[in-house]
Design a protein around this nucleic acid. Structure first.
Lengths: 221, 221
DNA sequence: TGTACATCAGTGAACGCGCGTTCACTGATGTAC
DNA sequence: TGTACATCAGTGAACGCGCGTTCACTGATGTAC
C-alpha cells in the first residue's frame, strides 16, 4: 500500500504475493472458499494468471494464505467483541459479560462474513501441505489466536470463581462446538432463513444453555 | 429392484429416476455433495448423460433428491441409535440414556458417513426450488424426521422430570448446535485428526456440558 | 387380433465454459568488475 | 561511472479436463379404432 510500491514499474509489481492474496481474500469474502479462483485473483490484480506461479506453487497454496487471513479476521473480531461494551464493576459479572461477548462475536462474525468464516475452516487436502504449521492437531489448535482468546476468557471465569477448575478443561470444546454449530446452522443449515428476531432468540437461548452447562459444578451434576 | 423391472428391455430402463438417484447418493456417500456429478451418475447406471434430463430438470434437482435421501439416512441412524442398548429400569435414567444415545448417534453418523452428512446439509440455491417442501423455515424444520425424533426424546425428558417445561423450548437448538458443531469440527475442522481416544473424550465432555446445560433448572441459574 | 400412429425414453455428438497449469519468451532489475 | 551479463518477474498463448446442458435423432411402448 506504500506509495513507493505503487509507483514502481507496472512490470515488476513490487508486492504481487500480497496483492494476489488480498484479491483472493476478497473473493473468499464474497463467495467463500470455492470462489477463490487463481485466475480471477490475477485478473483483479491486473496480471496474467501465470504470474501467480512465480509466488505460489499452486492454487492450494494461495487458498491456504486466504485461510490464514480469514482466521486472523475471526480472531480480530473475537478480540474486538470481547473488549466491547461497558465494563461491569463486579469482577464475576464482568468475566461473564466478556464470555458472552465472545460467544456473540463468534456467531456474529460468521453471520456478517459468511465467506471468510467458511474460508477459515477449509480443510487443506493432504496434497497441499503448508510449512510453518505444526503437524500435531493439539499444537496447531493451541497455537491459533482464536483459541488463545477463548482460553483467556475461560481463565477469567475460573479466576472469579464462576468456573470450576475441573470443568475448565472441558469448556473449550463445548464452547466451540456450540457456537460453531449455531453459526453453521444459521448460515447454511436448516436455520438459515430465520428472521432477525427468531435468530436473536435462538442465539440467546443457545448461549444460555451453553453457559449454564459450562458453569454447572461437577458436584451438583 | 424387482425382477420384472430388471428384466425389462435395456432400452426402457424401468426405473431410471431411482437408479440415478441411487448412483448419485453413492457418489455423495463417498465424496460429499460436490461429488454428485450428473454425468458420472448416468455413467454408473450405464445410460447417457442426456437421459437423465428425461427425469430431472437439472443437476440441482438431482442433488435435492440426494439431500432428501441423506436426511432420511441420518434419521434412520438417529432412530436406531436411540433404541439401541440395554434399557434401564428407572424411567428417568432411561430417558437420559436415550438422549445420550441420540447425541452420540448424531456425531457417530457424521463421522461414519461424512459424505452423506454433508449432503444432508447442502443448502439449495435460490435457483433450484423443489416442490412439496414448505416455504416457511420453522415448518420445514418441524416436518423433518430428525427433528421429530429429537422432539420425542426431549418430551421424554420432560415426562420424567429431568427437563423443566420452561427449558423445553430452548433445548432443540442448543442440542442441535452442540452436536452439529462437534460433528463438523471433528470432521472437517481443526479437530479433524484427533486420535480415537481424544475424539471420544471430546465427545463425552461436550455432551456432558450440553446435558448439564439443558437440565439445569432456570431457578438455579 | 391387427394396424396406424402418438408418445415416451433413450442415444450420441456437440457446445461453451472456466478452470489449473505449463511453456517458451522477454523486458526489467541488480550485480561484478 | 559504464558496461556485460545473470537473474528475476512478468507475458500470452496453449493444453487438457470435465462439467452441465442442448439438440436432432430413433427405437420401443402404449393406445384408439
Amino acid at each position: 500500500m506504500t506509495t513507493t510500491r505503487v509507483s514502481r514499474s507496472a512490470y515488476h509489481h513490487g508486492d504481487l504475493p500480497n496483492a494476489l492474496a488480498d484479491a483472493a481474500t476478497d473473493l473468499a469474502r464474497s463467495g467463500g472458499p470455492d470462489a477463490v479462483v487463481l485466475r480471477e485473483a490475477a485478473r483483479r490484480v491486473g496480471v496474467s494468471a501465470a504470474a501467480a506461479y512465480r509466488h505460489f506453487a499452486s492454487h492450494c497454496e494461495l487458498l491456504q494464505e486466504v485461510k490464514q487471513r480469514a482466521v486472523a479476521a475471526l480472531a480480530d473480531a473475537l478480540q474486538e467483541g470481547l473488549d466491547s461494551g461497558e465494563r461491569l464493576p463486579d469482577p464475576a459479572e464482568e468475566a461473564l459479560r466478556r464470555f458472552r461477548n465472545l460467544s456473540m462475536s463468534y456467531v456474529g462474525f460468521a453471520l456478517d462474513n459468511p465467506g471468510l468464516f467458511h474460508a477459515a475452516f477449509v480443510n487443506h487436502s493432504p496434497f497441499c501441505r503448508v510449512e510453518g504449521i505444526p503437524g500435531d492437531v493439539k499444537e496447531r489448535i493451541e497455537a491459533s489466536r482464536p483459541y488463545q482468546i477463548l482460553s483467556e476468557a475461560l481463565d477469567d471465569l475460573v479466576a472469579v470463581g464462576l468456573l470450576d477448575q475441573a470443568r475448565r478443561e472441558m469448556a473449550p470444546i463445548a464452547f466451540w462446538s456450540s457456537v460453531h454449530g449455531l453459526s453453521t446452522l444459521l448460515l447454511d443449515g436448516p436455520l438459515a432463513g430465520l428472521d432477525d428476531h427468531e435468530r436473536a432468540v435462538a442465539i440467546q437461548r443457545s448461549l444460555d444453555i451453553l453457559i449454564d452447562g459450562i458453569r454447572r459444578s461437577p458436584r451438583s451434576a
